Simulated assay, not measured.
Amino acid sequence: MSGVFDRALTGAECWIRAGDGTRRALPTRRWLNSSDSADRRADTALTRECDGPTIDLGCGPGRLVATLLRRGVIALGVDISATAVAITRGRGAPALQRDMFGPLPGAGRWSYALLADGNIGIGADPDRLLRRVGELLASDGVAVIEFDRPGSGMVTQRIRVETATSAGPWFSWTRVGVEYAEPLAGAAGFRVRTTVEVAGRHIAWLDRDRTTAAAALA
């Protein structure tokens, strides 16, 4: 996915092409700190509760990590893209080029984990990803996840990133409507505390389900 996707990270006009031929624009301006007030409201909602160590999974150019650091919150970005990590570090924010399913610092001690911009679809296995988030969070940690709009379902597709002149390789991704927040959370040992829609973006806060944890220890 590198190469063409790296151009998206630097603000180039890019699209996602699905295997069925449909195409949608990538929000590259938002990723680089859009001046649009609606984007800012939604990003504020994603981070407003984070008052302790926060890990941003699939951080992209690091706008959320940088925002948290400006507030004095310890934060770390993780992304598989070297370009994303370099841009994040260029903002003065820490980031690691890692597979989020591999070893990561602070596992089991993070207060918050962010999956913004639909990153619940990374790896095309939302259940596995949310369970991984559970491994990274402290027992009272919170997952903050951005889902697709209601009615989107849970659909896995082969997609690729395109520009006007080039296209990247095909890879699998899952789009997850916010109506799937509850069943995914329950299966992974979380409970949905609340969801909110801000400027057309749908965000859920997931707490660890202590009832489930207690039952597992019984």
Rank of each mutant, 00 (worst) to 15 (best):
R17A: 12
A218K: 07
V176F: 08
C50R: 11
N119I: 05
T44F: 13
A86W: 07
C14Q: 04
S34D: 10
E197P: 00
W173I: 09
S111V: 11
L104N: 00
T88P: 00
E197I: 05
P94Y: 10
D207P: 00
T47E: 03
P61W: 04
R30S: 15
R41D: 14
R70L: 09
E182Q: 13
A214Q: 10
S139Y: 04
V144T: 15
S172G: 02
G177P: 07
I120W: 15
T47G: 02
D20T: 04
R158V: 13
L69N: 03
G19W: 06
E179Q: 12
S152A: 15
G200F: 03
G153D: 05
D39R: 06
R131M: 05
F190E: 09
A199L: 01
D117W: 05
T47L: 15
R7C: 07
A138G: 14
D51T: 03
G141R: 09
W31C: 12
D51S: 03
G189T: 13
S34E: 06
L129Q: 02
M1T: 15
M100N: 00
G141L: 12
T88L: 00
V198F: 07
D127K: 10
L114Q: 05
G151C: 14
S2D: 13
L130Q: 01
P27N: 04
M100K: 00
S152Y: 11
G118Q: 01
A66F: 05
